[in-house]
């Protein structure tokens, strides 16, 4: 297999080969067992990675079911192996109850913290100059050093004001540091564009309002997230919690 073969396989699997190119490739598939094998391997690899990287709702629900039963295998032994003092059990039960109350109680006000946690993914823009700066921004952002991440993201935006990636994360960092109007300016711009972050930006826009207990505006933004968006479920859940 050479680089051209790999590119052809890739294009074939993406449905990107047409006309004569497609016919030629399919003819080669008939004649070349190695090519067929390589195609099979890549198809299997892509299907597996897709399934693992982007689990659908059914997979997620299934994993939750398994997680809910995990204790039935793990717990019993622990009880037998080491006698846990009663006060520890009581304290644990109390902690679990408090955690439950904090999470589910309708009167609690801290939905913002429940929903605002986000990790910055590593930079996708590959300009040599930008790479180090953005990597540093990722590090700071994920260490929750938002105030320090903001200027680095700002520099990236000075170089390229259309960089939705930097603008989206700067919007969140501004929100985390309570600079809400500035955060909204960034998130609004991302939402107005057509990047992958469009509806994530709508979600965080809702959180900027939630942060100041403006539930109405928060709802308005959550309702902008369409059913086919990846964060639709999360948005609906927050809407219910509101």
């Amino acid at each position: 297999m050479n680089a051209f073969d790999h590119e052809q396989i890739d294009r074939y699997l993406s449905g990107d080969l047409n006309g004569e190119e497609l016919r030629d490739f399919e003819q080669r598939l008939l004649e070349d067992a190695n090519l067929r094998k390589a195609l099979g391997t890549q198809r299997e690899l892509q299907d597996t990675l897709h399934r693992e990287l982007f689990p659908d709702q059914r997979q997620q629900a299934f994993m939750q079911t398994l997680a809910s039963h995990r204790g039935s295998v793990a717990d019993q032994t622990q009880k037998r192996r080491e006698q846990i003092p009663r006060y520890v059990i009581a304290a644990t039960a109390m902690a679990a109850m408090i955690a439950g109350l904090l999470f589910f109680s309708p009167w609690q006000k801290d939905l913002y913290h429940q929903y605002s946690s986000v990790e910055m993914v590593s930079p996708a823009e590959r300009g040599e100059h930008n790479e180090g700066r953005l990597l540093k921004a990722v590090e700071l952002f994920n260490d929750k050093e938002f105030a320090s991440a903001i200027p680095l993201l700002g520099e990236a935006l000075t170089g390229d004001s259309t960089n939705a990636y930097a603008r989206y994360y700067r919007g969140i960092a501004l929100m985390e540091t309570s600079q809400l109007p500035e955060a909204r300016t960034d998130l609004q711009k991302v939402f107005d564009g057509n990047s992958l972050f469009k509806y994530d930006a709508a979600f965080y826009m809702a959180l900027t309002y939630l942060k100041e207990d403006d539930f109405n505006n928060s709802r308005v933004w959550l309702q902008k997230i369409p059913e086919d968006a990846a964060n639709y479920e999360k948005a609906q859940k927050l809407l219910n919690d509101l």
Partner: peptide, 20 residues
């Protein structure tokens, strides 16, 4: 490609290199 700040052609080439 737009989100990654690269051209479509570059993305395709790079992806097939990475896959290989």
């Amino acid at each position: 490609a737009a989100a990654l700040g690269v051209t479509y052609g570059y993305l395709r080439k790079k992806k097939s290199e990475c896959m290989a």
